[in-house]
Simulated scan of single mutants.
Amino acid sequence: MKTSGLNYRHLYFFWIVAKEGGVTRAAERLGLAVQTISMQLSALELSIGKQLLEPQGRRLVPTEAGRLAFSYCEQIFLLGDQLQDALDEAEAGKMRLTVGISDSLPKLIAFRLLQATQTMSKQVRLVCMEDEFENLLADLALGKLDVVLTDRTVRAGGSLKVFSHLLGESDMKLFGVPRLADKYRGNFPASLHHAPLLVPTRNNALRGRIDTWLVQHKVRAEIAGEFEDNAMLNTFGRNGMGLFFAPSALAHDIEDQLGAVLVGDAPELREHFYAISNERKIRHPAIEAIISTVHSGLFAH
């Protein structure tokens, strides 16, 4: 069998040095002598015939070849950690689900979806990562994630071979703290003229639908804030900076957790929720449990 000839211990030392920015800090982290790490770095560079690190001020930074090697190390050692965790969990009768959660997805929706995994016969250990949509897709393609939960689909014809699975949809309602709700509830939605609104940024699909809804109802509201992160939007809404839209499926949670009350219904506005996977057919039991819960009426209101 052909092997790469790489010494993975040497590769691991390179990865730590690159992360720490120097041999001394890496040696402290690993509990080894500086000379030991320096010798093994030299042996690695000699074996592959390329310089991987170069001095920049007081730090060591990767060369162009080093940056490429570092990106592979990130995958190699992350997967190594996941392998060890998976083996330990399998021995203990547990299952691991590594989930990417888009920063634009309502966190209460993510909780509702993932809550289904906690009622399975086999215990599920959740590992949740939040990031921007594109970054999560890249991690999914690299095998760092089992699934991505998001509010948008993958654009057809993209370079990544991933698949979108529609989980469900919910119509929207407008909420606000009681002070604002009392002021703008009457004669809704015409009452929203000059009302302060908190909305997603324009790279969010829902934002375009909100803008269209305002135009259709001939409302010229004041945009008090635009947010990429849905949790941040809700925080500002909870503190009375403006009115905000949320899925009707979360109406009770919005009132209980954010202290916001209903201003009016916007049934023409709908938000969609997706699971993105590397497989056209979902095979992970925990993801199947999520989909089964959705089909049983998770988004019914």
Results as ranks from 00 to 15, higher is better:
Asp146Trp: 12
Pro200Ser: 01
Cys128Pro: 09
Leu197Phe: 00
Pro196Leu: 08
Phe133Ala: 09
Asn203Met: 15
Asn239Ser: 13
Leu197Asp: 00
Lys173Ile: 00
Glu222Ile: 11
Asp182Leu: 06
Thr150Phe: 00
Val154Asp: 12
Gly208Asn: 13
Val219Lys: 09
Pro196Ser: 07
Arg185Asp: 00
His193Gly: 10
Asp151Asn: 05
Phe188Ala: 01
Asn204Thr: 10
Leu167Tyr: 02
Ala190Ser: 05
Arg220Gly: 00
Asn204Gly: 10
Arg185Glu: 00
Asp171Pro: 03
Phe175His: 02
Arg202Ala: 14
Glu130Phe: 00
Ser159Asp: 14
Ser191Tyr: 05
Asn230Arg: 00
Arg202Leu: 15
Asn230His: 06
Val215Phe: 09
Gln115Pro: 01
Arg125Met: 14
Leu149Arg: 06
Thr117Asn: 01
His165Asp: 07
Phe175Pro: 04
Leu197Val: 04
Met120Val: 13
His165Thr: 06
Lys122Tyr: 11
Glu132Phe: 13
Gln216Ser: 05
Asp146Ala: 11
His217Trp: 09
Thr212Tyr: 05
Glu134Tyr: 11
Leu142Lys: 15
Arg202Gly: 15
Glu228Gly: 05
Phe133Met: 04
Val127His: 13
Leu174Ser: 00
Pro178Tyr: 14
His194Ala: 11
Thr235Ile: 08
Phe236Lys: 06
Asn204Tyr: 10
Val147Asn: 07
Leu160Ser: 13
Ala138Cys: 03
Met232Thr: 14
Ile223Cys: 06
His193Tyr: 12
Arg185Met: 01
Gly158Met: 12
Arg209His: 00
His193Trp: 07
Tyr184Leu: 02
Asn234Gln: 12
Asn204Met: 09
Cys128Asn: 14
Leu206Cys: 10
Val215Thr: 11
Ala205Gly: 13
Phe133Val: 05
Glu130Leu: 05
Phe133Gly: 08
Trp213Arg: 04
Arg238Glu: 15
Arg152Cys: 08
Val199Thr: 11
Leu174Cys: 06
Phe188Val: 01
Thr212Ile: 02
Val219Gln: 08
Phe163Glu: 15
Leu174Val: 08
Leu180Asn: 08
Asn135Asp: 14
Phe133Ile: 07
Arg185Thr: 03
His194Phe: 09
Ser164Phe: 05
Phe163Pro: 13
His217Gly: 08
Arg179Cys: 09
Phe227Val: 07
Leu126Tyr: 10
Lys122Ala: 15
Gly225Val: 08
Met120Lys: 09
